[in-house]
Amino acid sequence: MASRKTSHPNRDSEDKYSILLPTYNERENLPLIVWLLVKYFGESGYNYEIIVIDDGSPDGTLEVAEQLQKIYGEDKILLRPRAKKLGLGTAYIHGMKHATGNFIFIMDADLSHHPKFIPEFIEKQKEGNYDLVSGTRYQGSGGVYGWDLRRKLISRGANFLSQVLLRPGASDLTGSFRLYKKAVLDSLVERCVSKGYVFQMEMIVRARQLNYTIGEVPISFVDRVYGESKLGGNEIVSFVKGLITLFATT
């Protein structure tokens, strides 16, 4: 046992983790996130597969994904492309159809979510047999990098307002680095209709409504290294609309 622990401590576990990576124009980031995932899953020894759901990126993300599949193997990298950009919710449904894991990770492919936290998510899940574990930027050692004062203020303000109105029992409502039991994600994704930031919020609010248990892990969120980060007036308006909708309907 001791010798096994040093190399692959979790290889004998029955659990398998499917990582869903919805991508759109991520040819720079995809190889890096995959490399990091392989590194941290390799070190911790958990069984995994990476499912890339590319929505017809014009920048050739899919072609890079195919190269990665050759490097890391077809059992580790699965490609489930779609012809054009459709919603996040349908991307998860599409990806899950082919997922063979009993647990599903969802995270952004733009390197703002670091795979080094994955073992912590898994340990947290096992600790309380949680139905879902959510990464949080707002608690403990969690935090952000690359945000100015305005962005921090909007984020904290929006979070406070949502907490007051919805009392969801989780500190990071709009975060999108989460681990779900597969059946739980199945049932949630079916019910959630929102778009954008609100989608993640609806997922956690519905989870609470359905009495699923939620664990939290502090994460550092490093804002997009490549590409533009977006938080304009449009996002704020649609966030407020979504918040009001959830307030009135859940």
Binding site: H114, S141, G142, G143, V144, Y145, G146, W147, K152, R156, S220, F221, V222
Partner: peptide, 9 residues
């Protein structure tokens, strides 16, 4: 008190 994750970056 929002943590700035310089190290992580």
């Amino acid at each position: 008190t929002f943590n700035d994750c310089e190290e992580a970056a």
